[in-house]
Simulated assay, not measured.
Amino acid sequence: MTKVAPLRILLWHVHGSWTESFVRGGHRCYLPLLAEGGPWGRGLSGREWPSAEEVPVEELKDLDIDVVILQRPEEVHLAARWLHRRPGKEVPAVYVEHNTPREHAATTRHPLADRADIRLVHVTHFNDLMWDSGLAPTVVVPHGIPDPGERYTGELPHGVALINEPARRGRITGSDLLPAFADIAPVDLYGIGSEDLDGRHPALRPGGDLRSRELHAEAARRRVYLHTARWTSLGLSLLEAMHLGMPVVALATTEAVLAVPSDAGAVSTDVDALAKAYRELIHEPDFAVLAGKSAREYALSHYGLDAFLERWDTLLAEVIA
């Protein structure tokens, strides 16, 4: 295990779930704060992270930052302006790429492809494979999340899907596929904008946007977790469902083929085959329990928080050396 003395890290709050895991690493994280807030200065956004604090951007230059965690191309220039030190040249930096390339798979060049001085961190092997990273040295640090506990009951013979903005992001998130499952058993849909699909199918039931604890409790009461995303990095809600002990029915796209073992439910690009598996899990609760236990075991061993933080400590030790 790599031991790293606590570092002072400049970090933007971009993806809440990923940041929730990262700030548990024992380092001191400083989040930029602007009076008007917005995407570049939202600070903690109300999160209670003891190891993190929000700092007005005009005070950042007075901090002795050890490393910068970049997550958007604009942050390279903002960090240089606010720190009075250039990331990758005058202060160590890494760039975390959370997303799959758009618009074109396999041929999209990464914004940092011409930079050999900033390590490019992909959160999945699929992302590393598909992005044209050019000169940037790359490494994969898979996701890891805090364990919400084995809470699955499956008492409701429903499916559940967690999708933000399912109407606007329809084909990307696979929202158009949900009616095929709702024909078999009700599908309860949670996430920002889930109500926008209201009326699309009588058994498709929007549940709104819940806080994590409420969402974990509600999801775990449903019998099957549905993951219909066609094109996404690796949804942390999928990993959370597996940690809860839920059986999974998922499209075999992007990183899901590695994240979901075959005995945890069903993974396929054949929607008819997935619908058949969904029906079996809905109507055979004992089978669903066994599949959920396999999902949880795999998630704990491959996407646990301790492994995630250890990988990050190893990487940060290399970057600041």
Rank of each mutant, 00 (worst) to 15 (best):
P56E: 09
V91R: 03
V94M: 00
W49P: 03
R102Q: 11
E59Y: 11
V76A: 11
Q71Y: 01
L60K: 01
R86D: 09
Q71W: 08
A52Q: 07
W82N: 00
Y95L: 03
S45D: 14
V55R: 01
E58K: 03
E58D: 12
P87V: 05
D66S: 11
G46M: 09
P92N: 04
E54Y: 03
W82A: 00
P50G: 10
R72W: 09
R85L: 09
R81E: 15
E54I: 04
R47W: 14
R81T: 11
L83E: 09
V68T: 08
G43D: 01
I69F: 10
V91N: 06
V67I: 15
R47F: 13
P73A: 05
R47G: 09
N99Q: 12
Q71C: 07
P101N: 01
P87Q: 02
P101Y: 03
R47L: 12
P92H: 06
E59V: 12
E90G: 04
G38S: 06
R72I: 07
E36V: 12
V94R: 02
E58V: 06
L63G: 02
E74V: 14
V96M: 10
A80C: 08
E59Q: 15
T100I: 02
Y95T: 01
S51P: 14
V76M: 10
R42M: 11
D64I: 03
V94Q: 03
A80I: 02
H77M: 13
V96D: 01
P56C: 06
V68C: 07
R72T: 05
H104N: 15
T100N: 05
E75V: 10
H104S: 15
L60T: 02
P50D: 12
I69N: 06
P92M: 09
R81Y: 04
G38R: 06
K89S: 13
L63I: 05
G88R: 03
A93F: 02
S51G: 13
P92A: 10
E75T: 05
D64W: 01
V67T: 12
E54H: 07
E59A: 15
P73L: 00
V94F: 00
P39C: 08
G38V: 00
L78T: 04
E59H: 14
E48C: 10
E54L: 01
E75N: 08
V76Y: 10
D64R: 00
R86W: 08
E75R: 10
T100D: 01
P87I: 06
V91Q: 04
G37R: 07
P92V: 06
L63H: 07
V76N: 05
E74I: 11
W49V: 00
R102N: 10
R42Q: 12
K89C: 06
T100P: 03
P39I: 06
R42H: 12
L44S: 00
D62G: 12
G37S: 05
K89P: 04
A93G: 04
V94L: 03
L83A: 00
R81D: 13
S45A: 15
P73R: 07
V96G: 05
R42A: 14
T100A: 11
P101F: 09
E59T: 13
V55N: 09
R85N: 08
E54S: 14
N99L: 08
P87G: 05
V67G: 08
